[in-house]
């Protein structure tokens, strides 16, 4: 890494929550929610002005901020969209977020944005493409980027003679080549492990935790795709959908505890995007994450 590990984490090593529109008034009026930091989707705030951006600037004054992108399309074979990069740079200069991130994914090609994080064949060639894109993004944005492991639904089959790289190794090499950090989404690991049929614990054992600057947890749903999937031995016809629409599952909390035991405290975000609950429920989930952080903090203190 070109920079020291110390600069990898600039957010508080505490629990944060995703800021979504219905909760904005609670952050602006009355007794402010007691939360160390917030995260927003960068693209939601790529507007010229108006009340939405003004509200975020007001909230940002009292909270550390992470800007999480969903549209860089770091896996695009055709490179990054220069206009989008310039727009993001302007937004980040205005908001001065502590950390910025996006995903190991692509979101469209040939001038289209498909509003989804699409899977990449993880090959040596793809690593070259993503590394060049990450380096380009960091260059234009003037900031270190954290790259998140995506949730996946579809197994990709590579042509004969092309070797697949395991995702942890791919991300480790990406971080080593570009100096980017990693955003470890523990829920995505659980979702992919189920959908693609691998062992989440082994994946995490291989994950380059030294490069991780932030962790995400969120809820997922189980869906029987019987009419579509047919006899799916890999997942019994059940697919886990990463919908961020419910509480974090017990299995994901267990995986998080295991990761934190190895990393020590890191910024941990609870994401909730659909079927939003009252803010208290979301803050309750953040409190649960914080209790896991407190537990590892106590262990560090005793060591």
């Amino acid at each position: 890494m070109p920079e020291g590990a110390a600069s990898l984490v600039t957010l508080p090593r505490r629990a944060g929550v995703g800021l979504r529109h219905p909760h904005v008034p609670a952050f602006l009026e009355g007794e402010r929610p007691d939360i160390a930091w917030i995260e927003v989707h960068s693209e939601t705030y790529l507007v010229a002005g108006g009340p939405r951006l003004a509200a975020l600037e007001a909230i940002r004054r009292d909270h550390a901020l992470s800007c999480h992108g969903v549209g860089l399309s770091l896996g695009s074979a055709r490179g990054l969209d220069a206009t989008h990069l310039a727009n993001l740079r302007r937004l980040y200069d205005r908001l001065q977020p502590e950390q910025i991130s996006d995903h190991l994914a692509w979101t469209g090609t040939d001038g289209a944005y498909l509003n989804d994080l699409l899977p990449l064949p993880l090959t040596a060639h793809t690593l070259d493409v993503v590394a060049a894109n990450v380096a380009h993004a960091q260059d234009v944005l003037g900031r270190r980027l954290l790259v998140e492991n995506p949730s996946l639904y579809m197994p990709l089959t590579l042509p004969p003679g092309v070797e697949a790289m395991p995702e942890p190794q791919f991300l480790a090499e990406l971080a080593a080549r570009t100096g980017c950090g990693l955003l470890l989404d523990v829920n995505n690991v659980a979702v992919c492990a189920h959908n693609l049929g691998f062992d989440a614990a082994r994946y995490l054992a291989d994950f380059p935790l030294a490069a991780v600057g932030e962790i995400h947890v969120a809820g997922h749903r189980r869906e029987a795709f019987a009419p579509w999937v047919g006899p799916d031995a890999r997942a019994d016809g059940v697919v886990l959908i990463d919908d961020h629409a419910s509480r974090v599952s017990d299995g994901v909390w267990d995986l998080l505890a295991g990761v934190l035991a190895r990393t020590g405290p890191l910024p941990v975000l609870v994401e909730w995007d659909m079927d939003l609950p009252p803010l208290e429920v979301l803050l309750g989930e953040a409190a649960r994450a914080q209790s896991l952080l407190d537990a590892v903090q106590a262990k560090v203190a005793h060591a």
Binding site: L156, T157, W228, G230
Partner: peptide, 24 residues
């Protein structure tokens, strides 16, 4: 999609298709 052969991958492709079209 050449990299997504077989019934499982084809079925899973529909998850992405539904996500893309419905979310837009």
């Amino acid at each position: 999609v050449d990299l997504a052969p077989g019934p499982v991958a084809e079925a899973r492709l529909k998850i992405y298709r539904a996500n893309v079209q419905q979310s837009l």
